[in-house]
Simulated scan of single mutants.
Amino acid sequence: DRAVERMARAAAARGLVGLVDLDMTWNDEPWQRRVARGFDALRVSYGTYPQDLDRAIAEGLRTGDPVRGATTGLVRVGPLKAITDGSLGTRTAACAHHYPGEVDNHGLLTIPPDELVDLMTRATAAGLECAIHAIGDVANAYALDAYARTGAVGTIEHAQLVAHADIPRFARLGVSASVQPEHALDDRDMTDAIWAQQSAQPYPLRALADSGANLLFGSDAPVAPLDPWAAIASAVFRTRDGRDAWQPHQRVDIDTAIAASTAGGSTSASEIAPGARADLVIVEADPRTADERALRAMSVRTTLLAGRVTHAS
Rank of each mutant, 00 (worst) to 15 (best):
A56L: 02
L80N: 07
D54C: 05
T110D: 05
E59Q: 13
A94R: 00
L53I: 00
G107F: 01
I57W: 01
T92E: 07
T84R: 08
L74H: 07
T92N: 01
D54E: 15
Q51E: 14
A56G: 04
P100L: 01
L80W: 06
G64A: 09
R55G: 04
V103L: 12
G78E: 08
P79I: 11
T63I: 07
G64M: 13
D52N: 14
G107A: 02
V77Q: 10
A82G: 11
R68V: 13
R91G: 00
A96E: 15
R91N: 05
D85G: 09
S87M: 10
E115W: 03
G86M: 09
E102R: 10
H97P: 01
T110W: 05
L109Y: 00
V44Y: 02
R62V: 14
D52K: 08
I111P: 01
L108Q: 12
E115M: 02
H98D: 08
D52G: 08
R62M: 02
R68K: 15
G73D: 11
I57M: 09
G107P: 02
V67A: 03
L88Q: 11
L109A: 03
T63A: 04
D65M: 13
A96C: 13
D65I: 10
T110C: 09
R55Q: 14
V75F: 07
L53W: 02
T92Q: 05
N105R: 10
G86S: 06
D65Y: 09
G60W: 00
P50M: 07
V75S: 05
V103E: 13
D52H: 14
P50N: 06
T48G: 03
C95E: 01
G101K: 04
A56D: 00
A70S: 15
A56P: 00
G86W: 06
T110A: 09
L109T: 00
Y49I: 15
E102A: 11
A70D: 05
G69R: 13
P100R: 03
